[in-house]
Write a protein that binds this DNA or RNA. Structure first.
Lengths: 114, 114
DNA sequence: GGCATATTTCGATAACCGTCGAAATAAGTG
DNA sequence: CACTTATTTCGACGGTTATCGAAATATGCC
């Protein structure tokens, strides 16, 4: 019901967000909204060398959490909200957060959690 | 409104789940429900050396995603559902997944995303 | 205490990651 | 084409991680 590929895919996204620098970058992307933001502006905002930023952006793009489109000399970066939705969906569905929240009683060996 | 510590905390949890082996371990813990599962059984399920498993469990516990309680010779492991809830809450709130999903139109420079 | 089972700690190894500056590429402008 | 700006690629470095087997520790039982 859930392919191995999916798990590896989601793991790669979690890993990408697990680095504090990358999480900061991703948060900046999200805050930029659908309009996105150029790499250069992102660099100003976060304050890390361009090569480091590029490295992290490549990882965010590789796992699908972000995307880039060229606009002349500027490269505009955007968060892929739908992918984050997928990730949250995975965490909630696979890890039955809701079920756990709903049943604070000890009787949670239900099939929902198995 | 959001401390740096929180971000680092959540990043450490994301990082913990970002490793495929650890994600598998965590999923097994979740499936075990509130009753949890002994380390030994976990080892059978996942099929990795005990020392490796112990290493990963330590990380899951260190970031708060799991806990252990001793029951005689057996060490029982449990997923901390509330911590996962926090994590999902962080992803949804900080990264405005809902807002993005709700407004598929281009006009999403709203304060919700900023 | 001696023994069995469960789990961790230790020590080693190989692979990977984050960071940086310098050099290379991409795109536009005169 | 020369020049500028924007961004990436390259090469290096130090640090961290994942993995394993062997040895050590913890707990209970006889």
């Amino acid at each position: 019901m859930l392919g191995l590929m999916d798990i590896l895919t989601q793991a790669s996204r979690l890993e990408a967000l697990g680095n504090p620098t990358r999480l900061a970058i991703y948060r900046a992307l999200v805050r930029a909204g659908h309009a996105g933001t150029p790499v250069g502006k992102l660099q100003e905002t976060i304050g890390i060398p361009a090569s480091t930023l590029s490295h992290h952006l490549a990882k965010l793009c590789a796992c699908g959490l972000a995307g880039q489109t060229r606009e002349g000399t500027v490269l505009r970066c955007r968060a892929h909200y739908d992918v984050m939705d997928q990730l949250v969906g995975f965490l909630v569905a696979e890890c039955c957060v809701d079920a756990a929240a709903a049943c604070t009683s000890e009787e949670c060996d239900s099939p929902v959690c198995g």
